[in-house]
Design a protein around this nucleic acid. Structure first.
Length: 483
DNA sequence: AAAAAAC
């Protein structure tokens, strides 16, 4: 338990294919449905180990493909049971995935469902902020895989809607985040409900002493896998800083969005109230925006994320609820309306763009009072962020905007593509976005599970998922120090 | 100092 975990160098053959893992044909079919051929580095390292039944401590951020690195082996390992109709434990919960945020739970559940779609395995997701009843109904009917946030899971346990006595695989996703959020007591309560003999997988973006302690108490002789720390920030992300007056920050954010004609931009605010206000300001300025944060109802959160994903809105203003875990493909730009108090969060936030080898821009506005935060960030990422220059930006008051400003960046990025010429300045009214789409929100997880009606995510025509450039692999910790 | 998460 307390022995030094073995560490594996995550590197090596880039030519590994999913077909090499000996996964069941049903799983391979799901992978090829989605156009996945080559595993990411963490998948290539983790899948064989998890398949062996070993405990794993994975150091990986979202976007490295870590969800598949545990989902695929879970499905593979549970499959024999699922196919044995005689088994009395059929539809007992055999795998449990815990996540810190509701949105992450939903996302993991979507992935699991897609990977298991050709198998008889059932899965569901439970989280707070939503009616218990539909969740209860699905749980009582029986599922093999449950993805959950800790509080609501315990709620279901208390109400005897779920039994955890048959769980043979436990995944703690974003474990560092769960600790930050004070989930340790909940985690302990949940783990006490599980059989002693089980396989444990823990994923964390950081290796703090607390995480190591958690690992040494919950994991059994784990193998440690690490994919390049994004502390060394992904080089495909172009970062720019704009120093402005505190009161001008929202105008500058608006300016950046207009000047670049940004379509899918995620804007981070440090506070819930700030997020709401900025979203409202942008909306009044005619930019399609919504806010997502913990004071919104879960329905609103889901609706906002949904609207953002399908292009109904161009700007999502978020608190750090969205800093980690959210995997929105092809986000071209992230804007920090506030610099995060936590330097580590800067890395997580900007990691929402430039995913999977695509390029992305991370723009931050800050003022005098943020110099210290900025110093912490630059120290952490070990680089000086390019200072941008706002030219043509007209400082204004009371939400009034001047002429359409022209934005020019300092710094040395030559690849700055020429901005499309705008002939007219959109006036006060909303910009023309074409016919508004009013898709009804009908998330699959609100519906009772029917094996024949597994909702399929519409596969992108040509999934660029496979063969994408992969994050560089880093050298490892060389063994964790003992606690 | 703020955010997240069960009712």
């Amino acid at each position: 338990m307390s022995e030094t975990p073995t560490t594996i160098e995550a590197g090596g053959a880039p030519t590994v294919r999913f077909a090499d893992f000996g996964l069941a044909p049903e799983i391979q079919r799901a992978l090829s449905d989605q156009g996945y051929v080559h595993p990411t580095p963490i998948q290539a390292q983790a899948i064989p180990i998890v398949l062996q039944g070993r405990d794993v401590m994975g150091a990986a951020q979202t976007g490295t493909g870590k969800t598949a690195s545990f989902s695929l082996p879970i499905i593979q390992l549970l499959l024999p049971h699922a196919n044995t109709s005689m088994s009395p434990a059929r539809h007992a919960v055999r795998a449990l995935v815990l996540t810190p945020t509701r949105e992450l739970a939903i996302q993991v559940a979507e992935n699991v469902k897609a990977y298991a779609q050709h198998t008889p395995l059932r899965s569901t997701v439970v989280f707070g902020g939503m009616d218990m009843k539909p969740q209860t109904e699905i749980l009582r009917r029986g599922v093999e895989i449950v993805i959950a946030t800790p509080g609501r899971l315990l709620d279901h346990v208390e109400q005897k809607n779920i039994s955890l006595g048959q769980v043979q695989m436990l995944v703690m996703d974003e474990a560092d985040r769960m600790l930050d959020m004070g989930f340790l007591p909940d985690l302990q309560r949940i783990i006490n409900l599980l059989p002693k003999k089980r396989q444990n997988l823990m994923f964390s973006a950081t290796f703090s002493p607390e995480i190591k302690k958690l690992a040494s108490s919950f994991l059994n002789d784990p193998l440690t896998i690490e994919v390049a720390r994004s502390n060394a920030t992904n080089t495909s992300i172009t970062q720019v800083l704009y120093k402005v007056d505190e009161e001008q920050k929202r105008n500058v954010v608006e300016h950046l969005i207009r000047a670049r004609d940004l379509k899918q931009v995620l804007v981070f605010s440090n506070t819930k109230i700030g997020a709401s206000r900025l979203a409202r300001y942008l909306e009044q300025a005619g930019i399609k925006a919504s806010a997502i944060h913990g004071d919104k109802t879960q329905q609103e959160r889901i609706a906002a994320l949904d609207a953002f994903k399908n292009g109904d809105i161009d700007v999502l203003v978020a608190t750090d609820v969205a800093a980690r875990g959210l995997d929105i493909t092809d986000l071209p730009c992230v804007i920090n309306y506030d610099l995060p108090y936590n330097a580590e969060d800067y890395v997580h936030r900007i990691g929402r763009t430039g995913r999977a080898g695509a390029t992305g821009d991370a723009l931050s506005v800050y003022s005098d009072k943020d110099e210290r935060l900025l110093a912490d960030i630059e120290k952490l990422i070990k680089q000086t962020i390019t200072r941008g220059e706002l030219t043509g930006f007209m400082p204004s008051r009371g939400g009034e905007r001047g002429e359409r400003p022209v934005e020019r960046r300092g710094g040395r990025r030559e690849t700055d593509s020429p901005r499309p010429e705008r002939t007219e300045r959109p006036d006060r009214g909303p910009r023309n976005y074409g016919a508004p789409r009013r898709d009804k929100i009908d998330p699959w997880f609100l519906k009772p599970y029917e094996p024949s009606a597994v909702p399929r995510k519409e596969a992108p025509a040509a999934p660029a998922a496979s063969g994408k450039p992969k994050p560089k692999l880093a050298a490892l910790l060389g063994g964790l120090p003992k606690q």
